[in-house]
Design a protein around this nucleic acid. Structure first.
Lengths: 137, 137
DNA sequence: CCGGGAGTTAGACAGAGTCCAAGTCCTAGA
DNA sequence: TCTAGGACTTGGACTCTGTCTAACTCCCGG
């Protein structure tokens, strides 16, 4: 799927067992129709730049709901804020320290080998690989 | 070196081009004499449990100074706070999601292969690999 | 048309971290 | 020894991200 519409979003939400309300559709649309990884704050700005007024509480509620339901993923690279990533497939991240830009690294060719056994009674939730880069001086 | 004293710390600080003041020595000692990765808050508690009163501002100033000088490393795994890691050698992290416990993974046997070329004019600052685990239900 | 639950809202609140202006400490020089 | 100045520290106000709450709105089923 390459083109996202608000109707798409409604279906997508339903498929993830989420009741598609106006606000939820707008927020999902904001996330999926943008390339970049957005912070809660950016989501709110985008959503409120068009007609509808959506409150901060709803933005946070909704993002957390999307997380729970596995619709999006959170990316923790910046100590000051969380980024939300509509791409839930396996992939890694490139974080440009100076600018705060966060981009994807396809997981296809990346191999991680030699990780030790997990402690008993533990299971992996996820593996995050973050390559931090900066502009060469 | 397996045993850390405050005298050691003074030397260590000087070796990293940091003027060893009382507060800095205490903070360095707190970090290096503990196994765990500590948050700023925990550092402050530890340092103030003994005699000296050290202010929040100083704790943050000092941790940031240590970071700049490469004495410690910051670990960003929890959206709500930063952890500080006195181990600056190459290694990875295991994060227990439920409890917030953060432990090291030795880098010796771990190989990461197939990372794509960096964009022009970029250089790697660091590669963070975080394995998130939870208790099996 | 009505009642009720799900969803939304404004605004108060919490916690991490920064900033600032004033105060203290330490050292070098006379 | 005394003093001036820079380095360091401090309390407290402030900012920012995110959460909570209690009231309100919306929508759907009967």
């Amino acid at each position: 799927m390459h083109h996202y519409s608000r109707d798409n979003m409604a279906e997508l939400l339903r498929a993830h067992d989420i009741n598609p309300t106006h606000q939820r559709i707008e927020i999902a649309y904001a996330l999926f129709s943008h390339q970049e990884h957005l912070s809660a704050d950016q989501v709110m700005t985008i959503v409120n730049d068009r007609h509808a007024e959506t409150s901060k509480a709803t933005v946070y509620n909704t993002l957390n709901l999307f997380l729970e339901k596995g619709l999006i993923r959170e990316v923790i690279v910046d100590p000051s804020k969380v980024f939300y990533d509509p791409n839930t497939g396996p992939h890694h991240h490139l974080y440009e320290v100076d600018s705060g830009r966060l981009t994807d690294i396809a997981a296809d060719d990346v191999r991680i080998e030699g990780l030790p056994e997990l402690p008993k009674g533990m299971e992996t939730v996820g593996i995050d690989l973050i390559v931090r880069v900066k502009r060469t001086a």
